[in-house]
Amino acid sequence: MQQGFFRVTLVAAALALVACGEAPQDLTGQGVKQDGAPYAGVGSSQYAQTGWKVGDKASWEQQLKARAQYGQNDYTRMGTQP
């Protein structure tokens, strides 16, 4: 009985120590390209909204506000108010 308890305790201690040895998971040094600013565009203006100027943050924010107000607000799209 004493030996069984000792073995179980030894295995539990070994598992606890193995769990502490995990390697850090970070992106530095792996050649990962970070995203640029969303208002910088993708280089092609083929799919760009009219009125938006590539690289202009204020214009980008204005387009997002307009899209949220007129394109995604069901009350203004249907012409009914709550």
Rank of each mutant, 00 (worst) to 15 (best):
Q3N: 09
Q3R: 12
G4C: 08
F5P: 02
F6N: 11
F6D: 05
T9L: 15
L10S: 03
L15W: 02
A16Q: 03
L17S: 06
L17N: 04
V18I: 12
C20W: 13
G21L: 11
P24I: 03
Q25S: 15
Q25L: 13
D26M: 06
D26V: 04
D26W: 09
D26S: 09
D26A: 11
L27I: 14
G29V: 11
G29Q: 15
G31Y: 14
G31S: 04
G31L: 14
G31T: 10
K33N: 14
K33V: 10
Q34I: 15
Q34G: 01
G36T: 13
Y39N: 00
Y39E: 03
A40I: 00
G41C: 12
G41T: 01
G41I: 02
G41P: 02
G41N: 01
G41Y: 02
G41E: 01
V42L: 13
V42D: 05
Q46G: 11
Y47M: 15
Y47H: 06
A48E: 09
A48F: 10
Q49V: 05
Q49D: 13
G51V: 13
K53L: 07
K57W: 02
K57H: 06
A58Y: 00
W60R: 01
E61L: 11
E61N: 05
Q62R: 03
Q62I: 00
Q63E: 04
Q63S: 15
L64D: 05
R67E: 08
A68G: 07
A68T: 12
Q69C: 01
Y70G: 02
Y70H: 07
Q72H: 14
N73L: 06
Y75L: 10
T76G: 00
R77I: 07
M78K: 07
G79W: 01
T80D: 00
T80S: 02
Q81H: 03
